[in-house]
């Protein structure tokens, strides 16, 4: 099938960083979960790592525009995300899979992804094709007509990924996308991630260090709501060769960075 390339797709971007946060503060309830975070993310796949309670999920909620930052600046795709007026057009270019992926059990896979495409204001004519493509990319073509309540946890996670990528987002946020996927599906998912990261900014929050090393172009380590370290996966592995605890060099690199950061603080 011939896919027309529109003029807006070829337009050069006018911003340097798809995600640019400075002194960002975001509250989760009364607790300040993101506290003075400075972060710049370019095109590619960024693995967001950190211990439980480090503020990863709150950060993802702020970047997905669901939560309003309580301080600092947050620019997404060149727009000021703290300004309510730009949200509508900005959100058309975002894809988001929350950690707790809620769904309507009576919807079929196709209906659910179509509903999400509609919520993101995709042009009517583009929706059926985009839905089919998204469902194919996550390997659920055979189950497209199945009701969501009949699917396993891993399949639901893939439905969640399909709804997040259906609008070809410029900024894609995936919170723990590999939970419930079996090893083979995780390998397929990493391939998909690399494809997606070729021309958009993908942020993957995960607790699996090996996923980050295998599929990400950049590692972002946060703790207590602040940026601890940002670098290449290879650098993380190299750090792990010198010490730290864990089963793989990357895990050892991760723990040694956290230990160094905490003892310095």
């Amino acid at each position: 099938m011939v896919r027309m390339v529109s003029a807006t797709e070829l337009e050069p971007t006018t911003y340097a960083w798809p995600v640019e946060a400075a002194g960002l503060r975001v509250k989760a309830g009364r607790h300040v979960a993101v506290n003075g975070l400075d972060l710049r993310l370019g095109t590619g796949v960024h693995g967001l790592l950190g211990p439980n309670g480090a503020g990863k999920t709150t950060l993802m909620r702020a970047v997905s525009t669901v939560h309003r930052p309580s301080g600092g600046s947050l620019r997404l795709l060149g727009e000021d995300a703290t300004n309510g007026r730009v949200l509508r057009s900005l959100r058309r270019r975002l894809g988001y899979l929350p950690q707790h992926f809620g769904f309507y059990p009576r919807f079929t896979v196709r209906e659910y992804v179509e509903y999400m495409a509609w919520l993101r204001e995709m042009p009517k004519a583009a929706i059926p094709g985009a839905v089919q493509r998204a469902v194919e990319r996550v390997g659920l073509t055979g189950r497209a007509g199945a009701k969501l309540k009949t699917l396993s946890g891993g399949m639901l996670r893939r439905v969640g990924i399909a709804q997040a990528i259906v609008n070809d987002p410029d900024l894609l946020l995936l919170d723990e996308p590999t939970v419930g996927l079996d090893p083979e599906q995780r390998v397929e998912f990493r391939t998909l991630l690399r494809e997606l990261g070729a021309d958009s900014c993908v942020v993957v929050s995960t607790h699996l260090v090996e996923d980050v090393v295998a599929a990400c172009t950049d590692v972002v380590l946060v703790d207590e709501g602040r940026l601890v370290w940002q670098g290449l996966p290879a650098e993380l592995v190299r750090l792990g060769e010198r010490g730290g605890t864990g089963d793989s060099p990357a895990e050892r690199g991760y723990t040694s960075l956290l230990t160094t950061h905490r003892s310095a603080a």
């Binding site: 669901v66 057009s89 959100r91 975002l94 929350p98 809620g102 993101r120 204001e121």
Partner: peptide, 13 residues
């Protein structure tokens, strides 16, 4: 169940 996903879309609001 889908409040978080729908809240981040353009048609929210």
């Amino acid at each position: 169940p889908a409040w978080e996903i729908t809240a981040g879309t353009s048609r929210a609001g």
